[in-house]
Design a protein around this nucleic acid. Structure first.
Lengths: 339, 339
DNA sequence: CATTGGCACTCGGCGAACAGGAGTGCCAAG
DNA sequence: CTTGGCACTCCTGTTCGCCGAGTGCCAATG
């Protein structure tokens, strides 16, 4: 059905439309790309492509525009990743290496991505669920109040205040710290919860037991609730560039970007740092159905830490975005895994 | 120059324009407000108001629109704060009281404000500079690596990893913890830095001294660098509602909202929880000159914690926004100061 | 049978012309 | 000072007609 030239035509249409933002006609196509055939031939091919649903015309007498299905085919079979230039690579590396701490790494990453792609960038903090416990600290703030601090091997720190049913001694706190560390240190967070579940029953005294119960409950909440929370955005202003057809399409996107739940869905599939996933139009969660999302995971191959993505209109420079997302993910992964 | 009726006319113009978003003419004015005079009279008043620069007409034959100066007069002399309804108050209180921790309080606050005003809401975390030290914790992560945790009385927790020049013993760490707490606990963060500056010189051994130097340097950085950082936004999608005149005006606003530095300026003057400040148009920092910002501080009267604001088009419901900002600030202040 | 040039057709975009109407400014009278 | 009347401005929406881009179809060609 679709011979090589038709595919070539589709690629040309996508490329032209992405760069000009205007429907592309048969004549313009043969001029800009040397296809070696006449406009009439292209018209036949275009008719076939439209028949198959890869392109569409906004108005009867306008040029053609790729459909979501067309972009999909383009991404899957017609495009190759556009590698970054080596100055770009160097810039990325030095920029990211200058980061002071985890917050700074994530912040720089998201800004970098937004700037490179001129789209909206979304970066997820290294997920707790994929980290291990480096250390647990227990601090007595008052007679009946403790602070639990959980430090992960990715440098993330979660803390939580626990109200106790009764007062505790300093010695008991020291005990608690030792016990928790003995059970949790070095374990992945996904397992850590189960490992401390039985602790209250093993406590020596009734007091210890009630304290332990409160602490364990709180720790479990931390492990469960905060699993994947923090997400950082940058470049939302870029949304205004790509939208002539305004409030209608922009509104739901801005709303979706404020909804953590929606954003988390973007990373649902991206668990393999070596592959970049592209979701186009209707393939996205509600509110983002007019956009395209290019995402991947970062971290070591064997241990992905979290997701990172670029979001823009479906008319997006896919090869460029895929290249940028992949490269940035690699560098961030390196820094976080080594550092 | 401006008698009572002219002021009344200005108020009517502002109110009508805010609610209809359309230039308001003399006839409509006398119909919607019972001013007791004829349109012709109003026309004379309007001419005077225009002469003085309080209103302007977009086109020769259109109605009048308030200028920034007009809004300013309206806010300063013509409007009274619109108190929230008592169901609203109750809703706010219960909603905020349901918050689990500081993050949650701030998050709920910002969402609440955005929803109440249907504008963009901006909330600053309780500023470190206006908090006191509740506790300092020192945790040994590895032989040459310590974690410093600083907990403030507003529930904020800042942590930082310090690389040491050489290994430390557990006893030294315990010492360090005790010393730091002795000097810092209960002190405002603004003073805490000065109080630990001299510590390295008092150390017993050369090893202790080098460790202390590293720790103090890191602590000072935390105190200085992180003074005012985190800011949370909500309701950016509301920007699309109030803008027919799009990309041109929206773009710089979105950019400004991503710029922490700009946002911080919004709170520059707001240090008194009992007063709500309004900045209109050109009174705002670059990028926000087409918007109005209603801001205040929250916290105890004697000890403001941070700022909180609402941002929207200059055509904004000022009485409503001022009421909402004031009320929310009061409730958040209560919760954070008591809790 | 794919390719091509020719050609009629469609339809959106754009500017001109036009009518309607809202709103104004001015003026003279109360 | 207020008011009704009135001419004027100019924005808004509509219609009309034209232009041109782009298409689909067809017959001719290699």
């Amino acid at each position: 059905m679709l011979d090589d030239r038709k595919l070539e035509v589709l690629r040309a249409i996508v490329e032209d439309y992405v760069s000009t933002q205007e429907p592309v006609g048969s004549k313009a196509l043969v001029e800009r790309h040397n296809l070696g055939v006449s406009p009439a031939t292209i018209r036949n091919d275009m008719a076939a492509l439209e028949e198959e649903g890869y392109i569409a015309q906004p108005h009867t007498s306008a040029g053609r525009v790729p459909t979501d299905k067309g972009y999909r085919l383009f991404v899957d079979r017609l495009s190759s990743v556009k590698p970054l230039s080596s100055p770009e690579r160097r810039a990325i590396q030095t920029f990211l290496e200058g980061a002071a701490d985890l917050d700074d790494v994530v912040l720089r990453t998201v800004k970098l991505l937004a700037q490179l792609t001129r789209q909206v960038a979304v970066v997820q903090y290294p997920s707790l669920s994929r980290s291990s416990v480096r250390h647990v600290e227990v601090v007595k703030l008052a007679h009946t109040r403790l602070l639990l601090v959980l430090i992960t091997d990715t440098g993330r720190v979660e803390q939580r205040v626990v109200e106790l049913p009764g007062p505790v001694s300093d010695a008991a706190v020291a005990d608690l710290r030792a016990t928790l560390n003995a059970h949790m240190t070095g374990r992945p967070l996904t397992d850590a919860g189960a490992l401390i579940l039985a602790l209250p029953q093993q406590a020596d005294s009734a007091e210890d037991r009630s304290v332990m119960t409160a602490v364990v409950a709180s720790m479990l909440e931390t492990l469960v609730e905060r699993f994947e929370d923090r997400i950082v955005l940058a470049g939302t202003a870029n949304l205004t560039r790509s939208a002539y057809d305004f409030p209608f399409t922009l509104r739901p996107v801005l709303e979706a970007l404020e909804e953590q739940v929606t954003l988390l869905k973007l990373f649902g599939e991206a668990v393999d740092p070596s592959r970049v996933s592209v979701r186009i139009g209707e393939e996205n969660p509600e509110g983002l159905t007019t956009t395209a999302v290019v995402s991947t995971a970062y971290g070591a191959q064997s241990r992905p830490l979290a997701g990172l993505a670029v979001l823009g209109p479906t008319r997006m420079d896919y090869p460029g975005a895929i290249g940028a997302v992949g490269a940035v993910a690699r560098y961030v992964g390196q820094i976080l895994v080594e550092g």
